[in-house]
Design a protein around this nucleic acid. Sequence first.
DNA 1: CGGCGCCTTGACTTGCATCAAAAGTAGTGG
DNA 2: CCACTACTTTTGATGCAAGTCAAGGCGCCG
Lengths: 261, 261
Amino acid sequence: MPNQHAHPADNSIATAKAATQQCHSSPQVSCGDCRLSALCLPISLHIDDIDKLDRIVQRGKPLQKGDHLYRAGDDFHAVYAIRSGTVKAVHITDDGLEQVTGFYLPGEIIGMDGIARNRYSNSAIALETASVCEIPFARMEELSLKMPSLQRHFFQLMSKEITQDQQLITLLSKNSAEERIAALLLSISSRNHQRGLSSTHFRLPMSRADIGNYLGLTVETVSRVLSRFQKQALICVDKREISINDINKLRKISNAMSPYN
Amino acid sequence: MPNQHAHPADNSIATAKAATQQCHSSPQVSCGDCRLSALCLPISLHIDDIDKLDRIVQRGKPLQKGDHLYRAGDDFHAVYAIRSGTVKAVHITDDGLEQVTGFYLPGEIIGMDGIARNRYSNSAIALETASVCEIPFARMEELSLKMPSLQRHFFQLMSKEITQDQQLITLLSKNSAEERIAALLLSISSRNHQRGLSSTHFRLPMSRADIGNYLGLTVETVSRVLSRFQKQALICVDKREISINDINKLRKISNAMSPYN
DNA sequence: CGGCGCCTTGACTTGCATCAAAAGTAGTGG
DNA sequence: CCACTACTTTTGATGCAAGTCAAGGCGCCG
């Protein structure tokens, strides 16, 4: 059993120092104009409705690497759409270990675990400079009562989170180290692709330790498997830069996780 | 890596043969009078609202052991409240293996994975004679637009499913066989307790194979661990009957999964 | 009675964790 | 710009928990 203790960079929530140099979209852009709206908004939303939604969203909260977006146990009041950068969700176990339960890329929504108990059950930590849009949940709920497509969208987002978690469960309980890592690489690849980025060349936003933690493996195993993949010429690894050379073979190895996400 | 192939008892959806002999609550009882309403309904629901909800719920669908409630890939149209008996949710992987992603006891809701893609991503299979209430989702959605507390309740149910899945993820990726099995026993114990049943003596509704599948272990390991627990006088095992003798030591072993559920 | 699931137990194997050490990278400050 | 510290990643050697293979027991039903 891995034994990776938590050493959170204990900075508190980001000050208003700008993260804009890395942020492609201006922090002022409205939901209607956001490049990512196709991912985080219901497609069917009428233009007037987008305006209404726009008015409740707090745009452009900047985070530095290691900053907490929220902490497990904090009162729940909002979910967050990632605008740029990457955020990880970690569950803290009773005995103080961290379990990474997900990585959230631009266009994805984090924080829905908090709804059940009105308090976040995970902590969310930026893996790199990031900015997020805060969506106050109470106001979102109200708005949902008037906008059926928004309500439906939220139900769908949450359901998607459930199916993703269940895929991870399957991965953890049935698959070998190689299969897990292949699946993660493919997942990142296809999520990049969805946002119009390269699906074959990208930079991993997370450390080997985070990958291992997420996949239930040790750092050493992650490193060894990546080396092995490289030796087989499936991928090229240069620190955190990854090039996928033989995506089909990688798919065959992973043997899991559906083509989308 | 375990390699448990699927041999589903391939009966189709239950015919109207009564399951009532095992079903404590009469199939005709309304939501307002149901013993389980505290578990599956929002507490704050006004009596008139319960009536409205009551009108859309299809009560008492009976299932025999091995029957499918729905199958992965079926069009999604409803979620189901378990009324009596036990149902498992299984995810079928690309290579045809089953992964059990949850066990659903009376008062719990199954089927929310289907919302995301408008099609069930899991199959639901009765582990014993069971009856369920069907909640047509489209009508539930409509009703939610008029009843804020119902909308909220559904958000909470889904969020709860998310946090539970994340606990399972943690269990699978960080815990030993003994820890996993202790956690499952405690989970069942406390869910029984919530419904007013004994928390120390109960019958496991699922086979060793299902337990192993759910927890990412082989049948042999499940059996060995249960024997070991019995030798240490933590529990008594007689086939599927379980008595918990030392719940505190069991908690110390499990080292995970919060006291509730 | 005989056959079929389900469960248990034992002997052996193996994939990944653990332990250890060193090389590579990044950040800080003199 | 280099020296110093601290972290991340890689690689190797070794051990163990859980998987695999195999055999036998128990309960159930036709």
